[in-house]
Design a protein around this nucleic acid. Structure first.
Lengths: 358, 358
DNA sequence: AGGGTATAGGCAATCGTTTGGCGATGTCAA
DNA sequence: TTGACATCGCCAAACGATTGCCTATACCCT
């Protein structure tokens, strides 16, 4: 009946090491190590079936788990992957990260994540902190299309790939955002809507750049070029989308469609429309991007471009694993699909002439 | 001009160790270690000011960063905190995690997070995986009010605290959810609305339990008890909230207010109201919980109960740090506040009699 | 019988850091 | 001069796992 000692660390009561196993099984610690690791293969160093059995049994009975620090110190591999995202509070990035985490676990890697808030200074600091933990590789979800950050990491010898956003000359797992923009544009054009505005998003994110380009190009090719002043850049969350839409409406332009490169901006736009006495999906078509779960169940369900974000995260890990195996994988580009809902489908042909406040 | 060697690990080009510094500075490695660690204190083992200077300079020049594995192996402390949440795709948990991460970094800890999806089997597996990484402590954000999971962790000697959800007899950092429920109820009663339904949420989460209790108690004490069949439990995201509201409306009950214990359920409820030809905030008051950023900018801005989630995460880390310092901290309870918006404020007294489909 | 060769497994160094215990040098007082 | 003490810093043993090298036994073939 001793007072239970206060352990300074996690579940450290047991402290079963290779030595414990070796002693109980009556073999050398190196033998245990070999058995536990090279279950199969390693023709050079075999153990007799009985020994293998015995060691395996003992290890299981004692609930042995290898010490990650010791293993990592010796092997020079941490089995860690560092992940940097703009913010985890964006459900899209959170979903991507869940995919990363699942795939990483499947491959025996653990991950840790931090957010850069798309702030260059913070990005440097967070990256330094992460690298100090010696990950085997990094995944960057916050690539700035125009920064030299990635180039510098590469030069340092950091192994990494990108996710969500791409950048010229770097390995990435993304969706075909240009195609997504096209899909949105085609959908609107099919509905006979030719007066569109674009809430384009962050001008340094390939997602915003590509989606906007796909959309704008398609409209132009259809003979309906979108005026420059109707393509707005900025950090568009719901509040931002609302404000941007307000400013467009205030300018009194002819308009019957809005394309936002993310759903939250689109929701904000719907709010601005309502304030102006217009009904999204009836007077003005609104189309978002990412198809977050929320969008389907909004009061006015939102038309959006779906991408497989969880899968994207998983693909990024597959790239990393291949990289770590010395392979030379190619970037992954997932296909987006359009999900049509009330926010565009309700706009009748009669309204196609466009709404103008002027 | 040699071909750059492909490094198997992070930024491992340099590989500056204590030995490197010791050799360049002409002292023993142990001296370097002591200087780098006990900048001050350790009366037993001092170094001359010149030596300290020299070593510090060399370390800085060589950009020395200690090897976490070696350090952890030797000291038996990982400086890691494991975090378990239901899901990171919930912006509330993501926000809490950001707070955790920031505070942890400030205290020299790094964190890793994983999600249990509120699935008991997965919870066990994820926890085992995390503990295998030997964290100094854990933070659980997915406490099940009725499970013995936490008790078992405690018995194993795992050091931990809870966040977001509380549980009897365990250290936690939460907001006063009962009070939050009260605030919601008082707000509605002040508006003269006495026919309310509750979308209560997960019956095993203290958040749902306490918020609902605070709300229901207040209505009862005001002389307007809420019928049992108008208190619905379940996993309420937007889609779930929509369905739940639909079923309530289908039952044709007298109703002029709805309290949802999270904003997304509330948004779903607004959708269901619209489908039924009702206007949230005009015919029926809708009040959510958490005040996620989205809520303020919805087409119909949502009244909600605000809690400081980022701060909550930080408080949880403070608790852990105290715990690791051998202190015996008390649980933290943050105060919620009500943010009134159009979704309730627009309901006129005239409507207070309540809407009934029957 | 002798040599060749698997087979099974032990030995010991090593990864980078921490830390208790000493030793060497210097200072000061008696 | 000698002893008492500080002061400064080295030595070496850990922490737990991995891995190249070595040895001992047994088996096989001619």
């Amino acid at each position: 009946m001793s007072i239970p000692e206060v352990l300074p660390s996690g579940a450290r009561g047991s402290r079963v090491t290779l030595r414990t196993i070796a002693e109980t099984a009556g073999v050398h610690v190196s033998t245990v190590s070999r058995i536990l690791n090279n279950q199969l293969g390693d023709s050079q160093h075999t153990a007799s079936p009985e020994t293998v059995d015995r060691v395996l049994t003992v290890a299981a009975e004692l609930r042995y788990t290898p010490d990650p620090s010791a293993k990592s110190l010796r092997t020079r591999r941490s089995s860690h992957i560092g992940v940097l995202v703009p913010t985890l509070t964006d459900i899209v990035l959170a979903t991507i990260y869940e995919g990363i985490e699942d795939a990483a676990e499947r491959h025996g890697y653990s991950t840790y994540v931090t957010n850069s808030l798309d702030n260059p200074v913070r990005r440097e600091r967070q990256t330094a902190t992460m690298l100090a933990r010696h990950p085997d590789a990094m995944i960057f979800g916050d690539a700035d299309f125009h920064s030299d950050f990635l180039e510098r990491q590469r030069r340092k010898g950091v192994l990494f790939c990108l996710v969500s956003r791409r950048a010229e000359g770097f390995l990435s797992a993304t969706t075909d955002d240009y195609r997504g923009g096209q899909l949105a544009a085609e959908h609107l054009l099919n509905l006979g809507l030719i007066h569109a505005a674009v809430l384009a998003g962050k001008p340094f994110a390939s997602t915003a750049i590509d989606r906007t380009a796909g959309f704008v190009d398609t409209f132009r090719n259809a003979g309906h070029p979108i005026p420059k002043q109707l393509i707005l850049y900025g950090t568009f969350d719901t509040a931002g989308g609302r404000e941007a839409m307000q400013s467009i409406l205030a300018a009194g332009v002819n308009l019957n469609a809005v394309f936002a490169t993310n759903d939250f901006a689109a929701i904000g736009a719907m709010g601005a429309l309502r304030d102006a006495g217009l009904v999204a999906g009836a007077d003005v078509a609104v189309i978002g991007y990412n198809d977050v779960p929320l969008s389907a169940s909004l009061p006015i369900p939102l038309t959006s471009i779906y991408s497989a974000h969880n899968q994207m995260g998983q693909e990024a890990v597959e790239l990393i694993v291949k990289l770590l195996n010395g392979e030379k994988p190619a970037s992954v580009l997932l296909p987006p699909t359009l999900v049509a809902r009330e926010s565009t489908l309700g706009v009748t042909a009669a309204r196609a002439a466009g709404y103008s406040r002027a």
